[in-house]
Design a protein around this nucleic acid. Structure first.
Length: 482
RNA sequence: GGCGCUAUCGUCUAAGGGUUAGGACAAAGCCCUCUCAAGGCUUAAAUACGGGUUCGAAUCCCGUUAGCGCUACCA
């Protein structure tokens, strides 16, 4: 049984890179009928916040993918500590009593003299067990360090499903910490102990961890358990080619920014899944089911993928396009359900699912993000009053022509059934009688009724609005022209 | 600095020794058309650089350059 995990640390909101790691794990799990685990890596008490944990969970829930098991590392500290001391008892780790303040110094001195830099604090590896125990018993603070085998300068090898076989000499690996001086496990220790305990079979994570994997291989070996198979994912980078970061790139990288703009969760998943992965069949718009059945590690590539945002527009154009595609494909019921909150947000009185089921054919294919409802459907809820009178004037016409057109519209629309077919017939005939091009008649009506030059098809719009509203707006426009 | 990874149109990517280097987004143009949107057609746009190997290289090897990552008692 395949078991994968997403293991964020709660130090900020969920950003798009984290979301992608979750998504790839989820797709891999679902594709293989495996188990998706959410594990909160909150061993860094200094930087973790509950608010961050909540916002990460909110972000993940918004994706509408779900997970099967949930753990918090902070509730499993005993497990990590036991694992660390087991390594110590095997003689594969040692206490390092070097005060924190001396370490930078050691590092810089050693860095100058030893090519490859600083690997461990002098004297500490060699401390004999009795002496080490004595100092610890006296209460002297220490970190527990992994004793990287150094004598043979052996190679540590990782067989990564994406990057292939990579190896590193133990001579280039520092004696990393397992336990901090406050007794809490480090990321490396906690992560490996948990992966072992939770029987994680595959680790899909960001490429920034590729170099850490050598340490993890050593830990798993020391623990006497097989290391999970790893698949490192190329990083997501900003247009300046730097790694996506909350601090420098701001809210554009937060998934809540996408949520609040009105991305559909599965459109977002679709977009993100195409960053660093390809189905290799030229398909771009993929449903969740298609994604699940197509997703394989062979399709993951190795170079970083850029998200194309700017100061003016936080969203990659392709993300917006994909969202429009998914939006258009939505069943009317679901479209209505999802758009209503955005209509209410825009302050549209009377916005209801029922109303939007009627409006859907008029607006659905004209929206790219759900928030577009504010600009695409406004005139269905709010009287257009603030457009310039000049907009009523048709092409190659003047105000007099606009007046004639609007009066004629009132005249013919007063006496027909108010459905799109009858309206079209009446209006086309009217254009003929006025000897106007259809556009010259339709455009003034459109502007009068919608308050703008670009709007959904006219006859359907008039029908949806109803005779009373249409006449009120025609009158208002006529007044503006006087 | 050391170590590791990466390099195809502006962006996401396909092509894993033989193709006019393909698709998509974005851009431009045309068509359709009551405007917009959608749709259709077309154009412009790439193998970082230098050496090998080979009959033949985007593809394999080496070097250079550039970018990224790791090098914490952060994750």
């Amino acid at each position: 049984m395949i078991r994968v995990r997403f293991a964020p640390s709660p130090t900020g909101y969920l950003h798009i890179g984290g979301a992608r790691t979750f998504i790839f794990n989820w797709l891999y799990a679902r594709h293989n009928g495996g188990v998706m685990i959410l594990r909160i890596d909150d061993t860094d008490v200094e930087r973790n916040t509950e608010a961050s944990l909540r916002s990460i969970q909110d972000g993940l829930e918004w994706l509408e993918l779900g997970w099967d098991e949930f753990y918090r590392q902070s509730e499993r500290l005993e497990l990590h500590r036991k694992a660390a001391w087991a390594i110590f008892e095997k003689g594969l780790a040692y206490r390092d009593f070097t005060p924190l303040s001396n370490q930078d110094e050691n590092a810089s001195v050693a860095g100058e003299t030893t090519p490859g830099g600083w690997l461990f604090n002098p004297g500490m590896r060699e401390l004999d067990r009795a002496e080490s125990d004595r100092r610890a018993a006296r209460g002297e603070p220490f970190v527990l360090r992994f004793k990287v085998p150094r004598e043979s300068r052996q190679q540590v090898t990782v067989s990564d499903e994406v990057y292939g076989t990579v190896s590193k000499s133990t001579g280039d690996l520092e004696d990393f910490a397992l336990l901090r001086s406050n007794g809490l496990p480090t990321y490396h220790m906690a992560s490996c102990a948990d992966d072992a305990d939770l029987k994680i079979t595959h680790i899909l994570r960001g490429q920034e961890h590729l170099a850490n994997t050598f340490k993890h291989v050593l830990i798993f070996e020391a623990l006497g358990v097989p290391a999970p198979i790893t698949a490192h994912l190329p990083l997501l980078i900003a247009p300046d080619k730097s790694k996506l970061s909350k601090r420098v790139h701001g809210p554009v990288v937060s998934v809540t920014t996408y949520r609040d703009a009105g991305f559909l969760p599965h459109a977002f998943v679709n977009f993100v899944s195409l960053l660093g992965w390809s189905p290799k069949n030229d398909r771009e718009k993929l449903s969740l089911d298609e994604l699940v059945s197509l997703f394989t590690l062979e399709g993951v590539n190795r170079s970083n993928a850029m998200i194309n945002f700017t100061d003016q527009d936080p969203f990659d154009p392709k993300a917006v396009w994909l969202n429009a595609e998914h939006l258009r494909a939505l069943p009317v019921e679901e479209f209505a359900r999802r758009v209503v909150p955005f209509a209410q947000q825009a302050g549209f009185a009377g916005a209801s699912e029922e109303k939007f089921r009627v409006l859907a054919p008029l607006i659905q294919e004209r929206m790219r993000l759900l928030r577009d409802v504010a600009t695409v459907a406004d005139f269905f809820f709010v009287e257009p009053r603030s457009y310039p009178a000049e907009d009523l004037v048709p092409q190659k016409g003047d105000r007099a022509m606009a007046v004639r057109a609007l009066r004629k519209a009132k005249e013919v629309l007063g006496s027909v059934p108010f459905d799109r077919g009858s309206i079209e017939t009446a209006l086309r005939a009217a254009a003929g009688q006025l000897e106007l091009k259809t556009g010259q008649l339709f455009q003034p009506i459109r502007v009068a009724v919608c308050g703008k030059k670009n709007a959904p098809p006219l006859f359907e719009t008039l029908e949806a609005l109803g005779r009373e509203t249409v006449f009120r707006r025609l009158d208002f426009a006529l007044e503006m022209l006087q």
